[in-house]
Design a protein around this nucleic acid. Structure first.
Length: 649
DNA sequence: AAAGAGCTCGATACGCTGGT
DNA sequence: ACCAGCGTATCGAGCTCTTT
């Protein structure tokens, strides 16, 4: 039997974490949009899937290329912080937002926040263990090549535990005293956030002094996976979460625990009961998540305005932190005509105006009026799809939501209480009686599924089709080309396989282990698939990536109308191509023979040679051989083409 | 001749009304 | 409360006319 060598990437975790950090900062390769509070956040499905089985299930069950997930009742600020938490493992949360943060984190099943009731509290025991492990890890000289038995080498889980964990923490033996380690765990380098205008905290059992103290404390959440922590992931239970006040005061927001209110200084060493409690029980004793109906009248579809909507310093900070995630791609630049519902009556009578952020316009009027405003409509273009739970929707030409069910689209007819009634969009044309009722819980009640027609209404007229093709092209180009850049820099296979190990190693139970493994497999498969697809792209397509990046930059500089005209002209030229039927379409739906024409249009735009995308593109132009790879993707391309051509027809 | 503006008309979508 | 039907506003394609 030959000995095998276990190769350990010394900085693997750091690299992964920094990679996430980089993607988070730059907003590269985003492939999912989260809509909350009428604002958008761009993220990566892989990251969300890793961090949340909830998201994982969504992505698995809805294999949409770029899904848009609407998060009702989720504050934009909180979601920014949650994303930061997922990407970095560290986030600063104002204590006034902590409850909501925790609650939403649990609702979204974000690991590290979603506490398993059956598991013991993670705080104290993990605090001690992680700290000791942390020291051990840092002191230990990492060995890049170490001998191991073939068995251990073949077991990824074991690998991680043996390399980064000298002693696997026992989750069933909570350590009673952990406080001495607490101050050392406050590692956030950024403690500059302040909350001068914190809202009042309505906790009757907390003294005014404590309130005042607490009001100005931000809390530093730490969890596994943080690049900033400089620790090995396996040092922690994956679900561990520790919360520390900036000034080392442990938060004592539990209303019933008045006895602990006085230990302002002593709670550092007191082993706060907070750590010993289930997070959900502790943080959410009386919290009720009121279902809000967000009237999107006031939705600021211009992403630039998202930055201006922060009403608090923390919100501003969160917005700034998430700003890089936001896709600056502005569909409006392509002439998409969003017909928003200005000044129309809206909303649910059961909601209160205060529950509506962002100047939400609430009316107590008839439910039958202002149908569209009962929907959370993401800022997407006509014809684009999004999901709300199990329901699939698309946007009509006029910006109204259309329910997509069984291949047919249904326009909303009226709303009663918690139900929405939809009728077939072709009811008028064919006198179709098909009706569908949906509930606010996302269930579909098919009233009449008998369509007297087979035709599916074309929701996209030519201009919209052009715009959609352009949007898809840009999205695909951005995703694929940037994937090339990144995947060529990194060893994708290694990352994918090691990520599987990483995630699996962080699991605490066999069931969780399997879950994590599944998630990791999905992620690895996605990465590998992405790598295969991306590597096959030829360098001509880089021009289009360049085009995309330039457009993103120019949107803030050039007049939109000029750009719209150019886009439309480009697409018009493409549509008039003479050999459309002879060639395989590109992934973006553009025929290869149209590339030159496309590129001419692209070149006509103002170019920014200093941009990173431009430079990288140029580099690859000179170094990457033309693989002539369009045929490599012929299957997917043909699927894409079929899908779009079917819509066009 | 090419490009743009204006007009017409059919298709589509919205939301109101009345019936059950 | 639910369903069915209809009026009408809006949109877009295509055509014609005007301007350059």
């Amino acid at each position: 039997m030959d000995d095998e060598f276990k190769l350990c990437w010394k900085n693997f975790q750091d690299n992964i974490a920094s990679g996430f950090q980089s993607l988070y900062d730059r907003g590269d390769l985003v492939d999912v949009t989260l809509a909350c509070d009428g604002k958008l956040l761009q993220a990566h499905k892989i990251v969300l899937a890793i961090c949340s089985p909830y998201f994982q299930e969504i992505f698995v069950t809805n294999p949409c290329k770029h899904p848009i997930i609407i998060l009702k009742d989720v504050s934009y600020t909180i979601m920014c912080e949650l994303l930061e938490f997922m990407y970095q493992g560290v986030v600063n949360v104002k204590h006034t937002e902590l409850q909501a943060f925790m609650k939403i984190g649990q609702l979204l099943q974000i690991k590290g926040l979603a506490t398993n009731n059956s598991s013991p509290p993670a705080g104290p025991s993990l605090s001690e263990k992680s700290n000791s492990n942390h020291n051990t890890t840092e002191e230990k000289e990492p060995s890049q090549v170490s001998r191991s038995t073939p068995k251990s080498a073949a077991s990824p889980n074991h690998n991680d535990s043996t390399t980064s964990n000298t002693e696997k923490p026992s989750q069933t033996t909570p350590a009673p005293t952990t406080s001495s380690n607490t101050p050392q765990r406050v590692q956030s380098p950024d403690i500059s956030m302040s909350s001068p205008a914190s809202p009042s905290l309505n906790i009757s059992s907390v003294t005014q002094k404590q309130v005042e103290n607490n009001l100005h404390h931000n809390f530093h959440l730490t969890t596994a996976g943080s690049s900033g922590l400089k620790r090995h992931l396996s040092d922690y239970n994956s679900d561990s979460l520790s919360i520390y006040s900036r000034n080392k005061n442990r938060r004592t927001t539990m209303p019933t625990d008045q006895s602990s209110d006085n230990n302002e200084g002593s709670d550092v060493g007191g082993g706060s009961s907070m750590d010993q409690m289930n997070a959900e029980d502790f943080f959410m004793p009386h919290m009720s998540m009121v279902e809000g109906r967000y009237d999107l009248n006031s939705v600021k579809r211009d992403s630039s305005e998202h930055h201006l909507n922060a009403n608090s310093p923390s919100a501003a900070a969160a917005a700034a932190a998430a700003a890089s995630l936001r896709n600056s791609f502005n569909p409006a630049a392509f002439g998409l005509d969003y017909s928003f519902y200005k000044n129309s009556n809206s909303g649910s009578a059961s909601t209160i105006a205060q529950e509506f952020p962002n100047e939400l316009n609430i009316s107590s009027g008839d439910y039958s009026k202002g149908f569209a405003n009962h929907m959370d409509i993401p800022p997407i273009g006509p014809g684009e799809h999004w999901f709300q739970g199990k329901l699939e929707f698309m946007l009509s030409q006029r910006g109204k939501p259309l329910l997509v069910h069984d291949g047919h689209t249904f326009g909303i007819q009226y709303v009663r209480k918690d139900k929405k009634y939809w009728q077939c969009n072709l009811s008028r044309k064919f006198n179709c009686k098909a009706r569908v009722t949906t509930t606010d819980t996302g269930e579909i009640i098919v009233t009449n599924n008998e369509h007297c027609h087979t035709e599916i209404r074309q929701h996209l007229r030519k201009d919209y089709q052009r715009n959609k093709v352009m949007m898809n092209a840009l999205i695909n180009l951005s995703t694929n080309r940037l994937a090339v850049e990144n995947l060529r820099r990194h060893n994708v296979n290694s990352i994918a396989s090691n990520l599987s190990n990483l995630v699996a190693a962080s699991a605490g139970s066999p069931l969780a282990l399997q879950s994590h493994m599944d998630a990791a497999n999905v992620m690895a498969g996605t990465l590998l698939d992405l790598g295969k697809r991306s590597i096959s792209l030829d360098n001509e397509d880089h021009m289009k990536m360049n085009h995309h990046h330039q457009q993103q930059q120019q949107q803030h500089q050039d007049q939109q109308l000029t750009q719209v005209n150019q886009e439309n002209r480009a697409m018009h030229n493409l549509e008039e191509g003479s050999s459309l039927h002879d060639e395989q379409p590109l992934d973006c739906g553009i025929r290869s023979s149209d590339r030159e024409r496309f590129e001419r249009e692209v070149r006509s735009y103002k170019q920014d040679p200093s941009s990173e995308a431009y430079n990288s593109t140029q580099t690859h132009h000179s170094t990457t051989p033309n693989s002539g790879s369009n045929n490599n993707n012929s299957h997917e391309n043909s699927e894409w083409a079929c899908k779009n051509e079917a819509e066009i027809q």
